[in-house]
């Protein structure tokens, strides 16, 4: 039995990086390449278009300002998850509040995206209306799908944490996925919307 206040020894044979984190590193690696491929294709198509023809003249202007506002909500969710990660060991209740805040911010972002898609489709901007539309819905839609998965995973983490059953490596993996989803968005926003 360890003495009270004794410094814990590192466990012999303990992994350098936990399995959950390794798995998430592989997932994020693949996801980065997936989005890099799409964004590269988008850049190439845009570069090949004659001057003034990209985006195609018939396509509606993308809602830059409103999406920028929604982006702030997503970034705030990332900040909330970061702070929750720093606080979880000392103040579980505070970390839970922050995680609920992150879920709320991300849900607001996703709700706005659904609204944006509906409005754009209503004015005739679809997957097949132009190459621009195809790339837009593929890239932004794929990111939205990842955000939906991230919200579901974060909700699972919140439930496990409230039960006191969330393992530290699992929480690290969840946070890594969240940072990926949040960190990718400014790149997509800059390349697709601006």
């Amino acid at each position: 039995m360890a003495e009270a206040g004794a410094i814990p020894r590192p466990i012999r044979g303990a992994p350098i990086i936990e399995s959950e984190v390794v798995a998430m590193v592989i997932v994020v690696f693949c996801e980065v390449m997936f989005f890099a491929g799409f964004l590269s294709g988008f850049s190439l198509i845009g570069a090949r278009a004659p001057a003034g023809w990209w985006p195609p003249p018939g396509d509606p202007a993308l809602p830059v300002a409103a999406t920028g506002g929604a982006s702030v909500a997503l970034l705030l969710s990332g900040v909330a998850v970061f702070l929750a990660g720093r606080r979880v060991a000392a103040d579980r209740a505070g970390a839970l509040r922050l995680l609920w805040g992150a879920v709320a911010f991300a849900s607001a972002f996703l709700t706005y995206q659904v609204y944006e898609f509906v409005r754009l489709v209503a004015v005739g901007f679809t997957m097949v209306s132009s190459a621009h539309g195809g790339f837009f819905y593929t890239i932004v839609g794929a990111h939205a799908l990842h955000a939906v998965i991230a919200v579901a995973v974060l909700s699972w983490a919140v439930r496990r944490l409230s039960e006191g059953a969330l393992r530290a490596p699992a929480f690290t993996a969840v946070r890594m996925y969240w940072y990926f989803v949040v960190g990718l968005w400014p790149v997509i926003y800059t390349m697709v919307y601006l």
């Binding site: 980065v32 590269s40 850049s43 190439l44 570069a47 090949r48």
Partner: peptide, 20 residues
């Protein structure tokens, strides 16, 4: 057409996995 972008994209996609 777009040869400079192609070059940049090729370099980027080649170096990205190595960098990661």
């Amino acid at each position: 057409e777009g040869s400079r972008t192609l070059l940049v994209v090729t370099i980027f996609l080649s170096l990205l996995p190595i960098g990661m």
